[in-house]
Amino acid sequence: MRISPDEWIIAQWQGISLNATVLFTWAVMAILVAVSWAITARLSEGEKVSRWQVMLEVIVTSIRDQIAEIGAGRPGRYLPFIGTLFLFIAVSNLLMIVPGYTAPTASLSTTVALALCVLVAVPVFAVSERGVGGYLRGYLRPNAVMLPFNIIAELSRTIALAVRLYGNVMSGTVIAGILISVAPFFFPVLMQLLGLLTGFIQAYIFAVLAMVYIASAERARPLGEAQDDDAPHDNDKGD
């Protein structure tokens, strides 16, 4: 039994191997892009809107609303990053019902890669918002003694992010494998259904936590300033 899809080598060419993680990641990417392109190629700006467009609009608006709820000032700024995290993880997990498919998120490499992206995105967004000095000063709050703890918190939460997703998805796969060997009928179906639910929830949790980290890094500043930015920016068009 393969624990990680990384070990499942699909092809090998001149010392470069293509494992299942990367392949299924491409598949997920292809599905996401193809569906998006197919729908957005025929966008309607009038009153009559196709149901597929409505679906995409609902997804995008929901993500934006969620970002705004968490407290980030301009949802449009974070939408591509947070939205892609959510969509990628969700689609990766939901495709688990397809036989022969293994979720890329069941690979620790993928979750680590995503967690590293979040780790980098947090200071990038914070610096672009507050400048390098403003961001670095955040590590000294409430005083300089807290610097090591702040650094540890930054790293540990990244690791937690990666391991949480990996653990949940991988455990789902492992539990399904064990149950099939113990009770081959009926019960694995329920576990698959549960797996869909947990996969979706994990996507949500990952995206929300990423947003929370970014927002908290941006908010580490004088209170009055923070309150000004808390107001939702309705006119943000998401550039």
């Binding site: 990641t25 990417m29 892009v33 939408l79 591509p80 969509l87 998401g238």
Partner: peptide, 28 residues
């Protein structure tokens, strides 16, 4: 694989921004 996934993710971000978020938000 981690490096490849990071690249994949960044490419996906760009692609979705190009084909999904941009057009949808503009249309809305």
């Amino acid at each position: 694989t981690v490096a490849a996934q990071i690249v994949n993710f960044l490419v996906l971000v760009w692609l979705l921004q190009r084909f999904l978020y941009g057009p949808i938000t503009r249309a809305m």
